[in-house]
Simulated assay, not measured.
Amino acid sequence: MPEPTTHGQSQPRLLPRPLAWRQAGTGCGHPSEPPQPDHTPATPYAPAPGAPAELLARLRADRRAGQWVPAFERDWAKALDDARHTFSLTPLHEVVRTWQLRVAAAPDADAYLDSGRDESGSVDLDDVLDGRP
Rank of each mutant, 00 (worst) to 15 (best):
Q11K: 13
P12N: 08
R13S: 10
L14D: 10
P18Q: 08
A20K: 10
W21S: 06
Q23R: 15
A24F: 05
T26C: 07
T26I: 11
P31Y: 00
S32W: 04
P35H: 00
P35S: 11
Q36R: 14
P37H: 05
P37A: 14
P37N: 12
H39A: 07
P41E: 14
A42C: 06
P47D: 01
A53G: 08
A53H: 06
L55E: 10
L56G: 10
A57N: 11
L59S: 10
R60W: 04
R60Y: 03
A61Q: 15
R63A: 13
R63F: 05
Q67F: 12
V69F: 06
P70D: 07
F72S: 11
E73Y: 08
D75N: 14
W76N: 04
K78M: 07
K78A: 15
K78N: 02
K78C: 04
A79T: 05
A79H: 00
A79M: 04
R84A: 14
R84M: 09
H85R: 15
T86I: 04
T86W: 09
S88H: 02
S88C: 13
L92E: 02
H93D: 13
E94L: 10
V95H: 02
V95P: 00
V96A: 04
T98I: 04
Q100M: 10
L101I: 04
L101C: 03
V103P: 00
A104P: 08
A104H: 12
A104N: 03
A105P: 01
A106S: 13
A106Y: 11
P107N: 03
D108K: 11
D110F: 08
D110C: 05
